[in-house]
């Protein structure tokens, strides 16, 4: 997609949106129920950015242009992660915890979109396969490549967690140690308070 010229990419997007309106009518009717919003979608590994409009009117997806109005919210992440979210194949909170996606702006807009997308069982490859015309072939090839990449992201996330977090038992040991330390600190604080009280009484008696 890096080398796809913007006009050609916009044409492919238009065809895909038309196809999806046909195959997922409830998705578009549910998007129309949301408050009007403009979301900027920023695939971090693409030169393109996209503008998604929905709520109280037709839903549209277009390439971002300099003259686009300021968006209500932005979502940023690798294209594979964004496509996995679109298809409901990966948990968005997990991507949020791991910082694989970033959101800024009006969080309610993003949450509404996420939940509305998650209501729909979308298979982008099926929709693209159903596309006809001169863009069907290249688009199918592109999604096939992305699908392979998408398989890798789950494995990568699992590896990241394995590497960055100790095994459960170790973590529970750490928790246990933390709890013991807290108790110890609390006991010392109590002893200190008693000691200080006793010291004040002694000083008062001496006066």
């Amino acid at each position: 997609m890096r080398i796809v010229p913007a006009p050609l990419l916009q044409r492919m997007i238009d065809l895909l949106m038309r196809r999806m309106r046909h195959s997922h009518p409830s998705l578009f009717s549910n998007l129309a129920l949301l408050d009007s919003a403009v979301i900027c979608v920023k695939p971090s590994d693409l030169p393109h950015q996209f503008v998604l409009r929905f709520g109280q009117g037709p839903t549209s997806l277009s390439l971002a242009k300099p003259q686009n109005p300021v968006s209500d919210a932005c979502i940023k992440g690798k294209l594979e992660a964004l496509l996995n979210l679109l298809e409901g194949r990966i948990d968005s909170d997990m991507l949020f915890f791991s910082r694989d996606i970033e959101i800024t702006g009006d969080t309610a807009v993003i949450v509404g979109l996420r939940n509305t997308l998650d209501r729909e069982e979308i298979n982008l490859l099926d929709d693209i396969t159903a596309m006809s015309g001169p863009f069907g072939g290249p688009a199918r090839k592109m999604v096939s490549i992305l699908n392979n990449a998408a398989q890798r992201i789950n494995q990568r996330l699992a590896n990241i967690y394995e590497e960055s977090h100790p095994p459960s038992a170790d973590w529970q040991n750490v928790q246990h140690e933390r709890d013991e330390l807290r108790n110890e600190v609390q006991a010392l604080k109590t002893r200190l308070a008693k000691f200080e009280t006793r010291q004040k009484r002694t000083e008062a008696a001496a006066q």
Binding site: F97, L157, A158, Y161, S164, H165, S168, W171
Partner: peptide, 13 residues
């Protein structure tokens, strides 16, 4: 293998 979906990536009883 649920640690990755647990908040913060950590688990407790």
């Amino acid at each position: 293998d649920l640690k990755s979906v647990a908040e913060g990536g950590h688990e407790t009883f």
